[in-house]
Design a protein around this nucleic acid. Structure first.
Lengths: 341, 341
DNA sequence: CTGAAAGCGCTTACAG
DNA sequence: CTGAAAGCGCTTACAG
């Protein structure tokens, strides 16, 4: 027997027709149990696997989901946001559980990506992952919707977003962690991260922060907000901006853990102790958060649940079942950097 | 026009036969330039994409590579070794560069995985990634070789390994970093990590460590070696073993950065200062290494190069071109934890 | 340079 | 319960 075995080979050996082999191997109820066993034995012996290209072509669906990461390339070219990597893990597992394969691809925000995965029948649907400028990507998402592409996006759940989004409760997280810092007796809490509708996830965190301050009768000071994207480098630079301007602050709420870690580095270099001089909190609870020194207080996103919901929602969409955007609750993970322990 | 456009639809609109459309769109030289342009314009207008299942079925190759991660599940279920994630980034990019799609899958070492990706024509070849027990996986790899499956593995490049492996120079890395610690005046260097032929990558690092000690006329002390796998938790526990036994040491060479970071946590808890009391070095240079406190001295693996070589070697194999195992050089990334800065 | 024909390996009505 | 037939949408000899 040269090359791979086909269902026809098995049919010959089993003395049945090729369709019967197909039925038997997919567990069709209209096949005699003994016949099935005989066929299965032969299939195993020949190490037969159904040709996915052929069956996909016939059934017109691929049993595959494409995961698209959107990130502008980092200088180092191999850095990926660890938070998204946690998501990757849970998405992969959720796919496996549902019997779907996962195709992954990194797309640069700046290039004119088009999601041809579904058009070429390589995937039945798309999961979109990536912080990035929402206003920039808006029109592309709208085109996906127009084309009838099946997709779900991880991100801010807001009115006006094209398609379906799954996201965590960024507002609540920002609010809760700020309340926590206030409860530690910190009065001047800086916010490191973009705070505009270009980055609605960060913006929601910022709004939660501002809301908490107002609740406690504190002023929201514009000088205490410094733009930053989700990298250590950006967090480092944002903290340095505060330090160099000589702005007084006794706490930092960073819009992500990477920003927080970069900021802590800048604080240390400046001779400031965390949490004694400056309390620090992040957002995401990436695996590293518990192992930096001091360990980082942060807002935990449930990536396991998130991955499962993303996959389940996408599959609902694919199967023309009802599906809608959802917000996932967050919880605080309090550690040493905020002075909690 | 309902549903997706096919090459036949385009043929009708262009007034040519369907094969001509196929030829034109794939840039066949035997098609009139004007005809091609007309066809291409129509294809773009209809947002036509070649059906991958159909073309794969016909050509009998998938243009897809499967990346298999082997890791036993962590309790948290979404933790992945950050080093492999860097590799994932560079492998993805290398695939994209070569026009290949990437399918990813996590396989549990403990389960009886079989790599049916190639058998089912979902992928043309496999990349295997994962520290794990080599002796356990050996027989499965041998079966892959027997079946003629195309695969490359990231791991120890040693005689007797089935198939082709790409790996870094673990021995040299272990040697160099140990020489560095010795040069800092550290006499009692502990090694945290497995040191047996079940884990040849770690074992090579250990052998490099031992070789450096012997070169400098130091004794290799068995008590200073403690088993650990690549997690912070395991590193934390390994360091505690040393501390609790009261074994004297003034430096730690951890077989991976995660182990080093876990060990640093244990040292801090024990009131020991890094690097003043104990110098620490790791292996891998994961992105976090530069941002932990103190920043971690480590052995840098060139993941960008590694990913490229893995993909290129696999493609060579797929195309029946000569391919062989390769070792990639490493270099030291010296930071504060070893007392270098 | 172009078209008619065959076929990749399946799945699914349809007929018995 | 099983088989003969058709067809998913391409690509590639083959013929002109």
């Amino acid at each position: 027997m040269k090359g791979k075995a086909t269902s026809l080979d098995i049919a010959h050996l089993a003395g049945v027709s090729q369709p019967t082999v197909s039925r038997a191997l997919r567990g069709s109820p209209m096949v005699n149990e003994e016949t099935r066993k005989r066929i299965q034995a032969i299939a195993e012996q020949l190490n037969y696997k159904v040709d996915k290209n052929a069956s996909n072509l016939r059934t017109q669906h691929s049993g595959t989901i494409a995961l698209l990461f959107f990130e502008d390339p980092t200088p180092d070219d191999s850095q990926i946001n660890p938070f998204f990597l946690s998501m990757l893990g849970s998405i992969t597992r959720a796919c496996a559980l549902q019997g779907y394969d996962l195709l992954i691809s990194f797309q640069q925000l700046s290039t004119n990506w088009q999601a041809d995965y579904e058009d070429s029948n390589k995937a039945d649907g798309l999961i979109l992952l990536g912080y990035g400028d929402y206003l920039e990507s808006q029109s592309r998402l709208e085109r996906l919707v127009e084309q009838g592409t099946h997709f779900v996006r991880w991100g801010a759940v807001l009115p006006g977003q094209p398609g379906i989004s799954i996201g965590c409760d960024n507002f609540q997280g920002g609010h809760d962690i700020t309340m926590h810092l206030l409860a530690q007796g910190r009065g001047n809490i800086a916010f490191l991260g973009h705070a505009s509708n270009h980055y609605p996830e960060f913006f929601e965190r910022y709004r939660g922060y501002a809301h908490a301050l107002l609740t406690e009768d504190r002023r929201v000071q514009p000088l205490l907000q410094v733009d930053a994207v989700t990298t250590e480098q950006s967090g480092y630079e944002a903290a340095r901006v505060l330090l160099e301007k000589g702005i007084a602050f006794d706490a930092v709420f960073a819009a992500s853990d990477l920003i927080a870690i970069g900021a802590m580095k800048a604080l240390h270099e400046h001779g400031l102790r965390v949490p004694e001089d400056v309390a620090v909190a992040g957002f995401d609870d990436i695996p590293m958060a518990a192992f930096v020194n001091p360990s980082l207080s942060t807002v935990q996103q449930d990536t396991k649940l998130a991955g499962r919901i993303l996959v389940e929602t996408l599959l609902a969409l694919i199967n023309n079942e009802p599906a809608e955007s959802r917000t996932i609750p967050v919880k605080l993970a309090l550690r040493r950097s905020s002075g909690a322990l």
